[in-house]
Nucleic acid binder design. Structure first.
Lengths: 342, 342
DNA sequence: TTGTATGCGTTATCAT
DNA sequence: ATGATAACGCATACAA
């Protein structure tokens, strides 16, 4: 493997074109304003000749701007995170930014480490989809004037842009759909609330929905943990018993795709059939939803939009905008399938 | 939002501790070898006081080492890519490297742009999971002495480290399992071969398997495209017809999770039942595999291992190792479920 | 319009 | 053992 010449620098170009480094730099940055016709051509040719590309590192050092955006996700394995990531990456790229990714792998304590690592690379802003269990590092970067956009999860005491599914609308959409399909005993299954804003909001919206429907509809909330399949099975059985006691039909609203699979497993274990013995609507529409059991009804999140919007909010801030913190709530859409047929 | 003081530099620390910049730098880099007891303490205190962190940008500029690894994936939406990414990120982080991600979004032509973008940030090496339709940029970076590790897909004319599922072993494992379950008419469904090494290898292994079994087992290969569901349905029907003509059972081997879902959809559309009317083993074990139909039998790839190994190979190269290009083939494991019960 | 000189935050080479 | 200084690649204030 022939070790080829190191990549050329602005000095090389200058020498090659017989001009000064400053001139080359000007050609790069102020081509239109300050430039002499003949020289410009020579510089351009030299750049092409040497295949010169500016070093973003050096530029960052000089300008204090890195054209880098930091993205911290709680768990890259979560399809939701990936979907958002996708949209965000696209928007950033189109704006000439590159994304630096930090995955917490569900170890929330590492959030601070992630922020610091990215921060040290002088990223110009952060997109965060984390639990927010580490307010310190965040407050610090916010105080340093680095823009932050929160996705899906709000963090306490942090007055920054926020992009999320309209949780209330989504829960109402799903619950109403179930009620319309004659289900009357509802169970919201969520991962442990644990102060996570989106989960709390959904739980609250669920309560509100049930309350608004007086005695006609009754509902409970169950916090499911990965290890606690037995408890989930029990909760399902209890819900069905309550329903049968008043000759009603039970149905479950699932808080995300991971929980949906847990419910599917529990239902299968009980020998029940979705849509016949128990209804189900899950938040997050996945590629497999149509093919599990009779098809899982879902509330689809506009994930690409969420990612794009997060990135765009951030770009505005990076560009200097100083408007008050915004909250962007995007609506979910219902995809009805067999699991909620009456 | 109070614009807090800019982050402190090595000069600040030096002033604070009443020493020279060089001394601080020494404390940071050669603490053990050259150091006076008292001074060290003062520097350490100053660093703690000011919350100083070195700027990787400046370090990169000076050292020519960025502690950055570039990861280019064909499609971040592909669960396989994500799984590998996960393993790679972890290994990199543990080695003190950060990952810069570039997603092609299935637009292969952007590969060159991605390589160049990352390259300009002076990443120290590349992990690539792409189609390799753009050999130019790759050859160039290889010639620049930047290590490259290919994951899953080999690129022509590029003699670099390669980490992948043992495709032959995986296909044989799946095919033998189906034959053991009394399926005799096999159909390999893959995305269009199009010169993608992993797909070609699997197709070849499949052919070899069929050949080795003489007339007892017969097999065909079908290239499925996203838009061509009808063609897939027809291929399935044809396979079943061939099977029935010799009173045998048909079964499908799917090349990856995306194709598996297409097959599931086609089978559902035909009103067939997996495991009864047609067998199925899919490469890639996903979270939903147990819950689709009677459960999808799969060949599970050691994705985390693949990612880790790719990263570790790269780290070795980055550290200067110059051993000949390696090929690491990791075995898949069979997860038998309802879709292949005889 | 172009060139010279300086500094961004580090590290390394010289001195001392 | 420590300090002054140059250099990494670039952009800019200033001088010409």
């Amino acid at each position: 493997m022939t070790q080829s010449p190191a990549r050329s620098t602005i000095a090389d170009v200058a020498r090659h074109a017989g001009v000064s480094k400053a001139t080359v730099s000007r050609f790069l940055n102020h081509r239109d304003t300050l430039l002499s016709p003949g020289i410009a051509g020579r510089v351009e040719a030299a750049i092409a000749d040497l295949g010169y590309t500016p070093s973003p590192m050096a530029q960052a050092l000089k300008r204090g701007r890195s054209r880098l955006i930091g993205l911290v996700v709680a768990d890259i394995t979560n399809p939701y995170s990936v979907a958002v990531l996708r949209g965000a990456e696209q928007a950033c790229r189109e704006a000439g930014y590159l994304l630096m990714l930090f995955n917490l792998g569900n170890e929330g304590e590492r959030e601070s480490a992630g922020i610091h690592a990215l921060s040290s690379y002088r990223v110009e802003g952060f997109i965060l989809n984390t639990m927010g269990h580490d307010a310190g590092a965040l407050l610090e970067t916010a105080r340093q004037g680095k823009p932050i956009v929160l996705v899906d999860r709000l963090h306490q005491g942090l007055d920054v842009d926020f992009v999320s599914l309209d949780n209330r609308q989504a829960i109402y959409l799903g619950a109403r759909h179930l009620v319309d399909a004659a289900y009357r005993e509802l169970l919201l299954v969520t991962e442990p609330l644990g102060g996570v804003s989106s989960r709390l909001e959904r739980a609250r919206a669920f309560d509100a929905f049930v309350r608004e429907h007086g005695g006609a509809v009754s509902g409970q909330c169950f916090e499911s943990q990965a290890q606690g399949q037995d408890a989930l099975v029990a909760a399902l059985q209890a819900a069905r018993a309550r329903a049968q006691a008043r000759s009603a039909m039970p149905a479950v609203i699932s808080n995300n795709a991971v929980v949906t699979l847990r419910i599917v497993a529990a239902v299968a274990g009980l020998g029940w059939r979705l849509g016949r013995d128990i209804g189900l609507v899950g938040i997050d529409d996945t590629e497999w939803a149509p093919y599990v059991g009779p098809g899982i009804s879902t509330i689809s999140q506009p994930t690409d939009e969420l990612g794009r919007m997060a990135a765009q909010c951030l770009m505005q801030r990076v560009a200097g905008s100083n408007v008050p913190a915004r909250k962007a709530l995007l609506p979910g859409t219902l995809v009805a399938r067999g699991s909620s047929r009456q």
